[in-house]
Structure formats: C-alpha cells, structure tokens
Amino acid sequence: MTEFLAMGGYAAYVWPSFGLTFIVMVTIQLSTFSRRRKAIAAVRRQHAVNTQKNQQAGTGESV
C-alpha cells in the first residue's frame, strides 16, 4: 500500500493530477445540479405569478 501511494517516487505529481481532475469534475457535476434546481425554481416562480394573474383577472382558471 505504501509502495502504491509512493507511485515510484512520482507521488507528488500523480496524486495532484488525479485529485485536481476529481475536484474539477465534481465541481462541474454540482454546478449542473444547482443549475437545474435554479431552473425548477424559476418555473415554480413563473407558475405562481401566472396563478396570481389569473385569479386577479377572475378567469377562474384553476391550476
């Protein structure tokens, strides 16, 4: 195990490479998730605005 972690003396280059790649890819994925949450919130907001408008107009369109 220690030998594996030592990477034949190149640990200082191999592990940062893999670690950085991991961090960047996790960041991309998390930002995709938060982008989606934001979009769904926007739709919900729009829906609330529409419902309110409809009620004010007295169209009676139930949603």
Partner: peptide, 25 residues
C-alpha cells in the same frame, strides 16, 4: 452534464410555454 444544463436553460426560457406548464403540474 451538457444535456442537463441545456434542459435547465430551456425550462427557464420556456417557463411560460404550455408544455412546461403541463410538466410542472
């Protein structure tokens, strides 16, 4: 990731379209 982000942009731009409203309901 590209597909999910594209879907998010579409949702925001078309929040007032019927197909988005239907899906929301």
């Amino acid at each position: 990731n590209m597909l999910s982000r594209a879907r998010s942009v579409i949702l925001e731009r078309e929040a007032n379209n019927n197909w988005v409203k239907d899906r929301f309901r």
